[in-house]
Design a protein around this nucleic acid. Sequence first.
DNA 1: TTGAAAGCGCTAACAG
DNA 2: CTGTTAGCGCTTTCAA
Lengths: 337, 337
Amino acid sequence: MPARIEDVAAHAGVSTKTVSRVLNGYASVRAKLRTRIEASIRALNYVPNASARSLAGNRSYLVALLYDNPMAGSSYTMEVIVGVLQACKGTPYNAVLHPFDAADDLAARIDGFVATHRPDALVLVPPHANNAELLQRLDELDIPYSTISSRLRQSRIDVGFDERRAAAEIVEHLVSLGHRRIGHIAGLKGHGARTWRLSGYRDALRKAGIAYDESLVVDGDFAFASGVAGARTLLDRRRPPTAIFAANDDMACGAMREAYERGLAIPGDLSVCGFDGTPVSQLVSPGLTTVHQPCRELGCLAVQNVLQSIRESVVPQQSRVPYRVHLRASTAAPGKP
Amino acid sequence: MPARIEDVAAHAGVSTKTVSRVLNGYASVRAKLRTRIEASIRALNYVPNASARSLAGNRSYLVALLYDNPMAGSSYTMEVIVGVLQACKGTPYNAVLHPFDAADDLAARIDGFVATHRPDALVLVPPHANNAELLQRLDELDIPYSTISSRLRQSRIDVGFDERRAAAEIVEHLVSLGHRRIGHIAGLKGHGARTWRLSGYRDALRKAGIAYDESLVVDGDFAFASGVAGARTLLDRRRPPTAIFAANDDMACGAMREAYERGLAIPGDLSVCGFDGTPVSQLVSPGLTTVHQPCRELGCLAVQNVLQSIRESVVPQQSRVPYRVHLRASTAAPGKP
DNA sequence: TTGAAAGCGCTAACAG
DNA sequence: CTGTTAGCGCTTTCAA
């Protein structure tokens, strides 16, 4: 049977409340006493019981990560999870994962979840991060949350990175290689990611003095197949692009597939670049030029910010984290073998 | 303030204990009463408080998934997590994730984790699933666990699939295409996955009457770079193989990279196949022939089996789940363009 | 088959 | 700065 707080109190010759104070980091304990108690804790190998703590303290020490049911190997979610767990490490908080089907009556179902687990805070990733109804319900329940890459400004705690700037940067790279006809396979309509990346694409063209040609922009849905289809459409144009910027890596792989099927060499006949910096971008041949989305950092910061807002009851602003552009072999000057 | 069990009892005109019985599925409640109580539960929108439940019942309703810190987008872990969460859905159990660095003094650190969270059960994936010291400590703590793909026979609850047979099957496919010189890039020494897949490779050769040629087998470590290096070694042989079977998809991608660098066409000049059926196998061009490891099913079954062992205190045996071979464009008859 | 009372291990008030 | 007392919401004895 593990030691209880009472055992520690007896061992140290103090009351349980004082031990509790030490446990919870209250300043009002004399250094000498604190040291003695900490020694007892170690001596007895004491670890507080999470359930008892939550029940009495009306706190769960739980941070819930709400995400949609991840389709085929969403490394995005996995990476965010890693960041979230990392942020919890060393704190009394723990993470619970909760996949919610996006199609569901989310705002309603959230109540049951909150009632059972009483998470102290939530972290939302897209698309939930953009679900206005859901966020409103959370506000009503008065439970702190932070969103990752929310499109909505109403969310007060949000972490993200400058997707628009990142997209512009990668397209500027294509321009600097000499490309003038640059195709874009856009993301799913309604997603912030689509809008930002498309805007960045246009920013770069504008900056380079290249007229926006809407025949060079096709819709995708972030899935591989839509990248294949998008590339097919673009390459069938009378004057096909010499480079394609896909709004994510999976679609970029789709474009590479279409090029492969047509016998087009990459980057000789066509340059391709993606977005997200998923593991696959390093595994394909040639390696895919992409911009790495700092998922871990986002997950970590989302937790840190929301926990800070609980502690200090000060409302943190939107945070931006840096991204990195990876230049690989899938992009080169047009016509260069 | 959410409803408490007391409120439900009052609403239904029974004692809290009877409500508790219904909640916990005890048979000894008259059907009529049960129905009435269930109605009250719905009416009040009652959900039991997890902390109170754990504290009083000395149960946590938690299943802990122990995995090693996942490197770059381990879709394996993610898929297992999805399966674990799926198995918890609809049960009172919840999952907690716990990444443990493999190098650590695991058996010792597990105590603190168990003391804090009191998980009712654990699920272990490799390499932890093969950590004899860790399993022994869990036995001492008398906490039920199930392993996924454990190499060790001492683990009583284990789920996996027939990796050896699967590997043999994919190599048989290469043989059936006409390949006689088939290279193998093996996994990291000490891993069950290495041993089983290598054995399957040898089984297939034996069955086809092809002599085992140790110059066609090179060591890898499951990472992309080792696939590149392995392929380089194999292709530099005086008589290089016409096909390469890599022990996982990442290394197969490495082999494809090396072929790409040498200007070798796949599958015209070299057939390549992998193992695991990770998302990348569909994204590369040409699509990678591989065998799909049923990670979700494994995670799901691992939870179901261990929970069943708690309920029925009957020791389930090792379970095997089916796998699927995916034939894609990376394999063809030797010399066929 | 059902109910009353006694905790589970901890923290929150309030005193001292 | 420290201790006492009373619960948190549920399940578990044990009795009826």
